[in-house]
Simulated assay, not measured.
Amino acid sequence: MYTMTLKVGLTYNLRRKVGANENLPEDFYIEFDDAETVEAIALALRRGGCKVIKIEANLDAYSKLRRLKPDIVFNIAEGLHGEARESHIPVILEMLRIPYTGSGPTTLAICLDKALTHKILSAYGIPSPKFQVFKRADEKISDDLSFPLVIKPLAEGSSKGVRSSSLVKDEQSLRKQLSWVIKTYNQPAIAEEFLPGREFTVGLIGNE
């Protein structure tokens, strides 16, 4: 009996060091995956009987996906630039009508924006820490906020821009960290109530 081999595209961004002349934060590529991780996923797919096509999510990704036409894409790409960068590959795949794993463009765009995520969670009655977005370091602090606070870039993931100095306990430290985040990451900063306790990452499988 003939069995068709599933052709799986594996989309990803490879981690690398920031070049001396790139003028980027030192953790700019921290979200991207190393070659060992990408190859481990490819190997697992091959062991499952799939033919794997590795496609880096760079400026050539669209033409490669259109030409190679995989049956499905296993997407772990983070995207290159912009506040909706994690949506780039899913948007391309939907345009080309290629099914893929993981969240869709809307979900990915919302979740990268911490303030928008907080607002949506609150609208559905899900507890969420109080927060304030700062476009400038000298903006008035909301009366709803109380120290300690955690300062982060508004639209980053993988703990980019988060370090020991991100936890601030007074206004002087707050202003200093806000200024650093806004200047370093060229985007607004978000101040969130500090929540003590352990942090969990939860993986979900399925569509329901």
Rank of each mutant, 00 (worst) to 15 (best):
G157M: 01
P105H: 08
P129D: 09
G49N: 03
I53D: 14
I98H: 12
N23Y: 14
A77W: 01
D138V: 09
D27F: 00
L10M: 04
L96W: 07
K119E: 15
K152Q: 12
V52S: 06
K64P: 00
A35P: 04
F28H: 15
E56Q: 15
Q172L: 13
F134S: 05
K152V: 03
R163E: 07
L10Q: 00
N207S: 15
I30L: 13
E22Q: 10
E86D: 07
N75T: 11
I110L: 12
C50G: 13
V38F: 01
E56A: 10
T5N: 05
P90I: 09
N58V: 03
T37F: 05
Q132S: 02
M1H: 08
R15M: 03
A77P: 09
K17M: 04
S159R: 13
E156R: 00
A40F: 13
K114L: 08
G206S: 09
D34I: 11
D138C: 06
G197T: 05
D113H: 15
L116V: 09
T5H: 05
S146I: 07
F200N: 07
N58T: 08
E86V: 12
R47K: 14
E86H: 08
E171W: 04
F194H: 02
G125T: 07
D144L: 06
I151R: 00
R67S: 15
R136P: 04
I76A: 04
A155S: 15
T106Q: 07
R67V: 10
R15T: 11
E39P: 02
E83T: 14
N13A: 03
G48L: 06
S63W: 08
S122M: 15
H118W: 04
L45M: 06
Y185F: 15
K135C: 12
L93N: 04
A42E: 11
G48N: 05
W180H: 11
L65Y: 00
G157A: 04
A191W: 00
I53T: 08
E193L: 08
L10V: 08
R97M: 08
D144G: 06
I72G: 06
M1G: 14
V202K: 06
K135V: 12
Y2W: 07
A44L: 12
I182P: 08
L195E: 01
R175K: 11
L24E: 01
P129T: 11
H81L: 11
D60P: 05
N23M: 06
